[in-house]
Simulated assay, not measured.
Amino acid sequence: MSRAEKKLSAGAAKGLSKPGRWSDGGGLYLSISADGRSKSWVYLFRWKGNAREMGLGTYPLISLAEARERRDHWRKVQLTGHNPIEARRALPGSMPTFGECATRFITSMSSQWRSEKHKGEWQALEEHAKLLWPMPVNHIDMAAVPAVLNPIWETKRETASRLRGRIEAVLNYAKLTPSGPGRTRQHGVAISPMCCQPAKI
C-alpha cells in the first residue's frame, strides 16, 4: 500500500470529531456524524459508472488497521469483476445493511400508504439517516441512532420523533427478515428499540 493511501493514523482517527468524511486513501473514509459522537468506516468506489458506498463497521469497534484490511479485501473482489456489495450479500449468513432493509420495507409498505406526503417522507429517510444507510443492521448500536437524532432533537422535535419511529420500524422489520439478526447479538449489541432513544444532553 502506498504512503498516499495511509493519510490517517490511529491517533488521528481517535482524535477527529468534526462532522464529515475523512479520507485514508484508496476509497476508505472515516465518516463522522453531525454531532461528532458516532464514527464509522465506509468504502467508496465506482461500479459501472455509479458511485457506491459500502459500510465496513463502526469505530472504534473496527480499528483503522482492520478497516484497511477490509477495504483491501473488497477492492480485490472488485478488481476480479465483481460488485463488492453484491459479493458480500451473497455470503452465507451475511447481514443486510440498514439501507437495504429500509428499501425493502418501503417497497413492501408503499401500496398501503395513500398519502403522497407520507410516501415522500419515507422516501426522504435515506437523506435523514444517511449515516445508518451503509451499516449492517447488527452494527447499529446505542450510539449510532442518537447520532442521527440528536442534531435535530431540540430544534425539530416532531421531525426527530417521526424519524425515530421510522428507524425503529425498519429495525423491527430487519428482525423479521430471513437474513436479519433476530434476537442474536453481534459484538455485544442487540438490535432493540432502545437504540432509537436520543442521548440525553
Score class of each variant (00 low, 15 high):
residue 2 S to Q: 07
residue 5 E to G: 04
residue 6 K to S: 10
residue 8 L to D: 10
residue 10 A to Y: 00
residue 12 A to Y: 01
residue 17 S to P: 04
residue 18 K to V: 02
residue 19 P to R: 01
residue 19 P to Q: 00
residue 20 G to R: 07
residue 20 G to H: 03
residue 21 R to H: 04
residue 22 W to G: 02
residue 27 G to W: 12
residue 27 G to R: 04
residue 33 S to L: 00
residue 34 A to R: 06
residue 37 R to D: 11
residue 38 S to N: 14
residue 41 W to M: 11
residue 43 Y to R: 08
residue 44 L to A: 08
residue 46 R to A: 11
residue 47 W to A: 14
residue 52 R to G: 09
residue 53 E to W: 04
residue 53 E to Y: 02
residue 68 R to I: 09
residue 70 R to T: 15
residue 71 R to Q: 14
residue 72 D to F: 06
residue 73 H to F: 15
residue 74 W to C: 06
residue 76 K to P: 00
residue 83 N to T: 09
residue 84 P to H: 11
residue 85 I to L: 03
residue 86 E to V: 14
residue 90 A to T: 03
residue 94 S to F: 11
residue 94 S to G: 13
residue 98 F to H: 07
residue 101 C to N: 00
residue 103 T to E: 15
residue 103 T to R: 14
residue 103 T to Y: 05
residue 103 T to A: 15
residue 104 R to S: 12
residue 113 W to R: 01
residue 114 R to A: 09
residue 117 K to Q: 10
residue 121 E to G: 13
residue 127 E to R: 14
residue 129 A to N: 06
residue 130 K to F: 09
residue 132 L to F: 09
residue 136 P to Y: 14
residue 139 H to Y: 09
residue 140 I to L: 02
residue 141 D to N: 15
residue 141 D to P: 08
residue 142 M to S: 12
residue 142 M to L: 12
residue 150 N to A: 11
residue 152 I to N: 01
residue 157 R to N: 08
residue 158 E to M: 11
residue 159 T to G: 06
residue 164 R to T: 00
residue 164 R to Y: 02
residue 166 R to A: 05
residue 168 E to Y: 03
residue 171 L to Y: 04
residue 175 K to F: 07
residue 178 P to C: 03
residue 180 G to L: 06
residue 180 G to I: 00
residue 183 R to T: 13
residue 184 T to W: 01
residue 185 R to H: 08
residue 185 R to L: 14
residue 186 Q to D: 12
residue 187 H to E: 13
residue 188 G to K: 11
residue 190 A to F: 06
residue 192 S to P: 00
residue 193 P to H: 08
residue 197 Q to C: 12
residue 198 P to C: 10
